[in-house]
């Protein structure tokens, strides 16, 4: 295999990882810019949705086309419940307090998954049977191509939701100024609940697309979650396009480092990128600084 083919292959697999990171990062940013919560339970919300899909696929033997949407609906319901039962009634509404709350939720959800489904690795059926497609000298895995495409479709769906629907516009309004949105008569509580649901759906979609790459277990999303955080921070925590840009940059760079520099330090490389980007631009590539009034 020539060097150029190797590069092309790395770029495609990098883009497929980038799609997963982008979905995670989008969910994190969507929630952060609206609620100021750095959601550490994001990965575990996704895993919970994937376990629902796994049950539907293997126990009830539903086709993928039915199980996938049902799992997303289940994730949305879990997201809403988290908001209604935990986040809203919590007495500690500071940024750090809510962060700790999601850390506790992550531990609890992970523990619940392990208790119900066990900690062993499970094989999740894929959307399509995996084949290797040869394209010139480049061999690409069909699953990674489908993953990238599904990721892009979901991102477009989110963009359409935020741009063209009433709910989307309300979500953006609440993200901008919650108090003004409330004064204008927007049902802020419902909008926040919808935001949690949308974030959970994105988490579940990311986990479902990621599951074939690894195997399903309660800790599956630990690495994609930390990379999603990195992508979100690179792009800027309050910028949705930034999250996507950051995710693809990270996904491709990571594979290039694995290819040309060192496979061993591939994983720690992401955090070097974060430090460099943040030193140069403390609010990410596309993020804006919060205006502080004194």
């Amino acid at each position: 295999m020539s060097g150029l083919d190797q590069l092309a292959q790395a770029l495609v697999s990098g883009a497929s990882m980038g799609s997963v990171y982008a979905l995670v990062a989008l969910g994190l940013v969507l929630l952060y810019r609206t609620t100021r919560i750095l959601n550490f339970a994001h990965g575990d919300l996704g895993v919970a949705g994937t376990f629902v899909a796994y049950t539907l696929l293997t126990q009830l033997r539903l086709p993928f086309g039915l199980a996938f949407p049902l799992a997303l609906v289940a994730a949305a319901v879990i997201g809403m419940l988290v908001y209604l039962l935990l986040v809203r009634p919590a007495k500690n509404q500071t940024e750090l307090g809510l962060l700790i709350l999601t850390l506790g939720l992550a531990l609890a959800l992970g523990g619940l998954d392990a208790l119900v489904f066990g900690t062993d690795n499970k094989l999740v059926p894929t959307v399509v049977a995996d084949r290797i497609i040869r394209f010139g000298g480049v061999s690409l895995s069909l699953v990674s191509i489908v993953t990238s495409l599904l990721g892009v479709v979901l991102m477009l769906a989110l963009w359409a939701l935020l741009s063209f629907t009433k709910l989307g516009v309300a979500m953006r309004a609440v993200a901008q100024r919650e108090d003004v949105a409330e004064a204008m008569g927007l049902p802020v509580r419902t909008v926040l609940m919808a935001t949690w649901a949308a974030a959970a759906v994105l988490a579940a979609a990311a986990a479902l697309l990621f599951a074939p790459t690894t195997l399903l277990n309660p800790n599956m999303m630990l690495d994609p979650l930390s990379k999603g955080f990195v992508a979100a921070v690179i792009g800027g925590m309050n910028s949705l396009p930034g999250a996507v840009v950051g995710a693809y940059i990270l996904g491709v760079l990571e594979l290039l480092v694995g290819l040309y520099v060192s496979l061993e330090f591939k994983a720690s490389f992401a955090f070097l990128v974060v430090v460099i980007v943040l030193v140069l631009r403390p609010h990410g590539l596309l993020g804006r600084a919060d205006v502080k009034r004194v």
Binding site: L86, P89, A90, K91, N92, Q93, T94, G97, I100, L101, L103, G104, L105, A106, L107, A108, L109, G110, G111, L112, A114, L115
Partner: peptide
Amino acid sequence: RSWSQLTFGAVVIAVMMLEP
């Protein structure tokens, strides 16, 4: 063993929800 992580998380959530 198998209940420890769930309980741990639940206790943390409880403290954060009840006492800021």
